[in-house]
């Protein structure tokens, strides 16, 4: 039954995005940022890569700003419209609701990513790209986006209002995705190779970079899955805590 509840919550939240126009705005911002930064903030014209590397490289930064727009109302609206009381006085548990909501955002982000396929196909009209590699990179970006969605949803679960949720989620996502703290440690303690290697294992940017550069390692995939699981658990715990 828990899975059915999860699906019901997922379906409700997924529909919500398309009903509220929020997703269209986020999609427009996302696509414009992706295309704009790709053309003007990378060396894409001069160094068009077979794996569409520059495009994927930009994704953590862009998604870190777009995903909080999608997740900010995830729990805040439940508080605002008093629907949380309706939801949690039904035979459904907190984790199912939290995961359902997360899956809804994740799928919306997936659709957003899918809509960017147009950019790739358009570029493909002029220069060739390695289709299988690009498709795998899309899959890996979806995985990375999942971890940002989970972190963002967890931040939203701690907040009662949408602006607070947006700010905290953006802060967390940007901190996580854009700041390569592995390189900080490398700069501060250049001689401690083991520590550098260990911190690099926690470096979001580096892990994603490895993946999209063609090294699809088990540890990088596990990294994003663990972040996702941790954030989901934290988010569900936050809701349960606030409820009790």
């Amino acid at each position: 039954m828990a899975f059915k509840d999860l699906l019901t919550c997922f379906e409700k939240d997924f529909k919500f995005y398309f009903q509220s126009n929020l997703v269209y705005l986020a999609m427009l911002i996302y696509l414009m940022l992706s295309a704009g930064l790709l053309l003007y903030a990378s060396d894409f014209y001069l160094n068009t890569t077979a794996n569409f590397y520059q495009f994927f490289k930009l994704q953590p930064g862009i998604l870190a700003m777009v995903i909080p727009v999608l997740t900010m109302r995830l729990w805040a609206d439940e508080y605002k419209y008093n629907t949380l009381e309706i939801l949690f006085t039904q035979p459904i548990n907190t984790a199912a609701a939290a995961i359902g909501k997360f899956l809804a955002v994740w799928l919306v982000v997936g659709i957003m990513l899918l809509s960017s396929v147009g950019i790739w196909l358009f570029v493909g009209l002029f220069t060739s790209t390695d289709v299988s590699w690009v498709l795998v990179n899309y899959g890996l970006t979806f995985l990375m986006a999942g971890s940002l969605c989970a972190v963002s949803a967890a931040a939203a679960a701690f907040c009662y209002s949408a602006p607070a949720a947006f700010l905290s989620a953006t802060m967390l996502c940007v901190l996580l995705s854009v700041t390569g703290f592995g390189s900080w440690i490398e700069e501060i303690l250049p001689d401690s190779t083991r520590l550098i290697k260990l911190t690099q294992a926690f470096d979001f940017e580096q892990q994603f970079d490895e993946l999209i550069s063609g090294k699809v390692s088990l540890s990088s995939i596990a990294y994003f899955v663990i972040i996702m699981a941790t954030a989901l658990w934290t988010g569900a715990a936050a809701v349960e805590y606030k409820r009790s």
């Binding site: 260990l198 294992a201 063609g214 090294k215 540890s219 990088s220 972040i227 941790t230 934290t234 715990a237």
Partner: peptide
């Protein structure tokens, strides 16, 4: 609680990176 699971997940990441070091698929053409 949050601190606990964050520490747990960091330990898992470190553990996986040690155990799975060198396990990867080469996607480059």
């Amino acid at each position: 609680f949050v601190l606990g699971i964050v520490v747990l997940s960091l330990a898992s990441i470190a553990g996986v990176s040690l155990v799975a070091d060198g396990l990867y698929f080469d996607m480059t053409p």
